Amino acid sequence: MEVRAIIKKWQPGMKAFFSTFPWKNVLALLFFLVLAFIFWLMLFFQKENVEGTYRIPLKYTNIPDDVVFDNPLPPFLEVSVADNGAQIFRLDMRKRDSLEINVTEITEGGNKVLQGNQYEQLIRSQLFPGTNIRGYYPMSISLATSKLQRKELPVVFDGEITTSRANLVADSATFIPEVVMAYGSQQSLDKLKGAVTEYTVFKNLKATSQLPIRINNVGGVKFVPSQVDIYIPIQEYTERTFEVPITVTHMPARLDVKFFPSRANVTFSVTLEAYRKIVPEDFSIELDYRKFHSNEDGRVELELTDRPSSVINPRISPASVEFLFESKTER
């Protein structure tokens, strides 16, 4: 209410102010300002020897895999130019593409430094034909390289894979390609047993996926390729439970054993395809008398001794049972 009262109080004054404001004078002033700018722009376009300085990104291509540069490569070029105003204006408005430096082509014949006429011709490809080059930095680019040793390494995954509910990873993740080439000094390569990926988390995967993943950087070592694809097979799973009897081996002929309970529940995950093919007889919980007969607490841990290879994450409940030995009666 207080804000509305203030607005209501000032509203008549604001209306009176804008109704008496000299809009015609303001519009006339803006018109002359625009006109002055247009005249200035025309004079600028006709002016000769207008200078400008531009930063051009550098892009290095066709670099041999088995070499490393002896000196850091500059990421961009600073060039100072002069031309008439119209051309300078066009350069200002123009989107500058990267200046491509073809390393293999330039270093053919033993040339290790980009400089002189060869360098200027590349720079001119980014300018207009009549534009004068006043100067540029760096004046030269060293493309000297040293030969590297190489070693083939298997790709190793570092990260986590989780699936959405009712889905599981059906098999181990694989890589495309499975091996990469590492280039570096012999000392650096001797320390590497595998090309480890960057730590990556793949969350809530719902279907078989092929995803890009980068190889983790190692100082002084170059991996080719530096990025691979990880193939993660995902299948839809369901959970099932069977009741399995507890049996025992190597029992003395004079003894019987009773377990409490005598059966255990085995819960497991299985693909929908294999769901109907699995029966309780595929599982066994078999205990060895020699391993538990001396347990003083009268309990024994259960262990699943046989199961189909297609089941995943089997669990036994209860995890342990009580046992009691009885002597057999002679007949």
Rank of each mutant, 00 (worst) to 15 (best):
L153M: 04
V68Y: 11
P154L: 10
G109Q: 02
N216M: 10
E108I: 11
L58G: 01
I6D: 11
R307E: 06
M93T: 06
N102I: 03
R290P: 09
N49L: 03
N167G: 02
Y237M: 13
Q46F: 10
V201E: 12
F18Q: 05
F202E: 07
K15W: 14
F260H: 07
P225Q: 08
T238W: 06
L287Y: 00
I232H: 00
M181I: 08
R4W: 14
G116D: 08
G220L: 05
G130A: 14
S125C: 07
V34G: 12
P22I: 14
S142G: 10
L77Y: 00
G184T: 04
T197I: 04
N265D: 11
R124P: 04
K193A: 07
F31K: 15
R214N: 13
I230Q: 09
G116I: 12
I7W: 13
I6K: 13
S320Y: 11
L33I: 10
K291E: 08
L43G: 14
A86C: 00
F175T: 06
L192N: 00
D297R: 03
P233S: 04
S142M: 12
L189R: 03
P22E: 07
N62I: 09
F45S: 08
T208W: 00
E281P: 08
W10P: 03
T208K: 04
V244S: 02
L127D: 05
V196P: 06
E152Q: 13
Q118I: 06
I176R: 13
S146P: 09
I312M: 11
V224T: 09
P129R: 10
D92R: 13
Q115H: 14
T107H: 09
G13L: 15
A207T: 09
P74A: 05
N167T: 14
F44G: 01
F39D: 12
K59N: 08
G184S: 06
V224Q: 02
L30N: 11
K203S: 06
L304M: 13
P261T: 02
E236Q: 10
L153C: 07
A264I: 01
P129W: 02
A86T: 04
L148H: 00
K147I: 12
V103G: 01
Q187K: 15
P154H: 02
K203G: 09
V266Y: 13
K191M: 11
S188L: 07
F32M: 03
P72K: 09
I215W: 11
G85S: 04
L35M: 04
N265F: 08
V201D: 14
P245C: 05
M14V: 11
N295C: 01
R90P: 03
T241C: 02
N217I: 07
D158H: 12
D190N: 12
S269M: 13
K24D: 13
V279W: 07
K191S: 11
E48C: 00
R4P: 05
T249E: 12
T200N: 09
D297C: 10
G219S: 13
R96H: 06
K15T: 10
M139R: 15
T20Q: 15
V34Q: 14
Q227A: 08
P212M: 11
I88T: 10
I7R: 13
V257K: 06
K222E: 05
P252T: 03
P225I: 01
L255A: 05
D190T: 07
L29W: 11
V218Q: 15
L114Y: 03
